[in-house]
């Protein structure tokens, strides 16, 4: 890459992150170590301004489940000549600070296009359920799913909806003929109910 392009890229990445209020953007393999590092980073930051315990727990919970989804479900793919690895994805944490109204966690990963209808059906089902319905679905999936089941029976997604009390915001972007890019945005409100 030419030197000036390189500098421009760094500056624009920095500007974009500031403008979008992203504290952390990570694109790559999601390992257990990465999960631990990112969650403790967020915890330390929240501790620095004595965030409410219940909100801290929610943020921690959502981060863990989002990262777990990436590490378990992101598929191998080839895109524009670059090979994406299994378990790779993009993980974004919005600005963490006492002046913000909410926290946000965004994930993006490649999924086989054939898996999209099933995933979409689950997401829509979750979004239609109320608190009690989500609880029943969680119990049902926990009873029926096997612990080694890669799908995890969608427990992570149900749990995210339950813990945040918000609808799951998702999008499937076109990548190529075989893959779609699954983007999931989760918000955790800082107001205490």
């Amino acid at each position: 890459m030419e030197n000036s392009n390189y500098l421009k890229l760094i500056c624009s990445l920095h500007e974009d992150m500031m403008a979008k209020k992203f504290t952390l953007v990570y694109d790559g393999e999601i390992t257990h170590q990465i999960t631990k590092a990112f969650t403790s980073l967020a915890e330390n930051k929240m501790n620095s301004y004595s965030e409410n315990t219940s909100i801290k727990r929610k943020v921690f919970h959502v981060m863990v489940e989002c990262l777990q989804n990436l590490s378990k479900h992101a598929e191998e793919y080839e895109y524009k000549g670059n090979k994406g690895q299994y378990g790779n994805g993009i993980f974004i944490v919005g600005k963490i600070g006492k002046e913000e109204n909410e926290y946000q966690v965004i994930t993006g990963n490649a999924v086989d296009k054939n898996r999209v209808p099933e995933l979409k059906a689950l997401l829509e089902k979750i979004n239609q359920l109320d608190k009690e319905g989500l609880k029943e679905l969680f119990k049902k999936q926990m009873r029926e799913g096997s612990v080694s089941d890669k799908g995890g029976a969608g427990l992570g997604l149900i749990d995210i909806a339950r813990k945040t009390g918000e609808k799951l915001e998702y999008h499937f972007a076109e990548m190529d003929e075989n893959n779609r890019f699954f983007i999931l945005r989760t918000k955790i409100s800082r107001s205490i109910d």
Binding site: F60, L155, G156, I158
Partner: peptide, 9 residues
Amino acid sequence: YFNTASSKA
């Protein structure tokens, strides 16, 4: 604290 993967176990 336990994650959803642990909840099944």
